[in-house]
Design a protein around this nucleic acid. Structure first.
Length: 479
RNA sequence: GGCGACAUAGCCAAGUGGUAAGGCAGAGCUCUGCAAAAGCUCCAUCCCCAGUUCGAAUCUGGGUGUCGCCUCCA
């Protein structure tokens, strides 16, 4: 089986042939921690997480570099707005990202390099570009001269002249060309700065990725990824910088871009500010359901994110685990689940979907169909779930386990206390106590009392369900 | 205006020449004191028009529509 990936640069599906067969090198643009991580970050990094898992399942080692752009205009703005040092802003929001990444089950990058810790490498690269004439200095910085790079526009399929035609009236530009972009920004009062041959300042956006990718993966590597909003200008500029300097192309064999997430049919963006922090979302829904949601869609398609969609994903995932439990039960009862074909060939079927440009939606459909038909063993399902990064058990995904930590609001607590004689220590114990009373009433067939207690719990925001193993309960809106 | 992507049931979504995966919702049934959960069953001819072909959701041409990028963004 051979992996085929859609290469943005050629706009076609290509057979993936790594530079070195055994080890794949991947660079993905990470986040600029100037604000809360959002659902779009989750989609992008989930995409590349599945790519890594799939490569690993195929027996390849993947070196994965995901940078942190820890200095830029937005961070400086944010720091000013919050009256804090820029480092504190970075620490807060990147820390938040890391927590979300853990909850989503993202494999840790092999390297998470920071722009500010690689200023010398960045300066060296800019110096090289200046010396070769591809960049020039002005009073406020150092700029890359786009006209010196003939392939400019190839990734984003754009004609340089057309880009120029769309230019706004330049106000203060000392730039030779409207398209030229900053490699180095000279310090303005109050801004953080690092020393350089062009005076104190900081790296422009774009150069850090060129420098970091080169530092850890070399002049040329296999896959460069990010979300599709980075194609222009960010990735276009990266290519211009790196390939001008090294005179080797392509910088990356395959350029992969994840589709954007929209909210309520509208593009989500920093400037519109129309997004929910990821943390809030993960507090409301199981992280595995968020992963499942995106696995159901091709990674390149723009996706409209809605509450309904997450809720459908929660239900769908719960159903998958129910199916899996049933399969495990059947197979432990001595009924060999597999009728025809070996387990390996079934896994091949599964992998074939992922080989087809990471068709996770198709893979998921296949998995559910074969599970229902009893055509796979639980062990095989486990392997598949591992590749997709989903927990192997529903309980680990946040299903089926009652909330142990509960905080009732005061009126609810008072109402429940009136129903019992003793004074349980915690809210959870209080709920358990009321449930016990209801259980007793049910045993005595006193359904009037039983229903009254159910209603009281519902009023306190607790929903319950009877199962053959006892009564399960949860706070509404959780799990 | 330029470039690009997409258009499959109420919703989400696979499928790239051989007669429409999967999920959610909905309907029916089983189970059930109630409420859930779970199980079984049912539920589309693929935006429009014209072609190519024995055969097209899948290829070609022409429409229409939606979205994205062209400015900070995953």
């Amino acid at each position: 089986m051979a992996l085929r990936l859609f290469n943005s640069r050629s706009r076609s599906l290509e057979l993936f042939v790594p530079i070195e067969a055994a080890e794949v090198s991947i660079y993905v643009c990470g986040m600029t921690p100037s604000w809360h991580p959002h659902i779009g970050h989750a989609r992008t990094f989930l995409t590349f997480d599945v790519l890594r898992r799939h490569l690993m399942a195929k027996g390849r080692k993947a070196t994965y570099v995901q940078n942190i752009t820890d200095i830029d205009d937005k961070i400086i703005e944010r720091a000013a707005a919050e009256h804090e040092p820029w480092e504190a802003i970075v620490r807060r929001y990147y820390g938040e990202y890391e927590a979300c990444a853990r909850r989503l089950g993202l494999l840790e990058p092999d390297v998470s390099p920071r722009a500010t810790e690689h200023v010398p490498a960045i300066i060296a690269m800019i110096r090289g570009l200046v010396e070769s004439g591809a960049a020039y200095e002005t009073s406020d910085g150092v700029y890359f001269a786009v006209e010196r790079f003939p392939a400019y526009g190839r990734l984003s399929n754009r004609q340089i002249d057309e880009l120029r035609a769309g230019a706004r009236i330049a106000v203060r530009e000392e730039k030779h060309d409207w398209l030229d972009f900053a490699l180095w920004k000279k310090q303005k009062p109050g801004e953080p700065a690092w020393p350089s041959p062009w005076g104190d300042g900081r790296p422009g956006w774009h150069i850090e990725c060129s420098a970091l990718a080169r530092e850890y993966l070399g002049d040329q590597f296999d896959i460069h990824g990010g979300a599709s909003d980075l194609i222009f200008p960010h990735h276009e500029n990266e290519i211009a910088q790196t390939e001008s300097l090294t005179a080797r192309e392509p910088m990356a064999r395959i350029w992969m871009h994840a589709g954007l997430v929209m909210v309520d049919g509208q593009k989500m963006s920093k400037s519109l500010g129309n997004f929910l922090p990821l943390t809030t979302l993960l507090d409301r829904y199981p992280a595995a359901a968020i992963r499942f949601l995106f696995l159901q869609t091709g990674y390149r398609k723009p996706t409209n994110f809605t509450e309904d969609a997450v809720e459908a994903a929660v239900k769908g995932l719960r159903g998958l685990y129910a199916e899996l439990d049933a399969l495990r039960l059947r197979s432990s009862n001595g009924r060999p689940a597999l009728s025809g074909g070996s387990s390996d060939s079934a896994f091949d079927d599964f992998e074939a979907y992922l080989d087809d440009d990471l068709n996770t939606a198709g893979a998921l459909g296949w998995l559910q169909k074969t599970m229902r038909g009893g055509l796979v063993t639980p062990t095989l399902v486990d392997r598949c779930l591992n590749v997709l990064g989903l927990p192997l058990r529903g309980a680990d995904a946040g299903f089926d386990s009652p909330s142990r930590e509960v905080r009732l609001d005061e009126p609810a607590r008072r109402a429940l206390r009136e129903l019992t004689d003793d004074r349980p220590a915690s809210d959870a114990a209080l709920v358990e106590r009321v449930l016990a009373l209801r259980g007793a009433a049910r045993t005595a067939k006193d359904f009037a009392t039983s229903d009254k207690l159910r209603a009281a719990l519902a009023a306190a925001g607790i929903s319950i369900k009877d199962t053959k193993d006892g009564t399960d309960w949860s706070l509404d809106g959780h799990r």
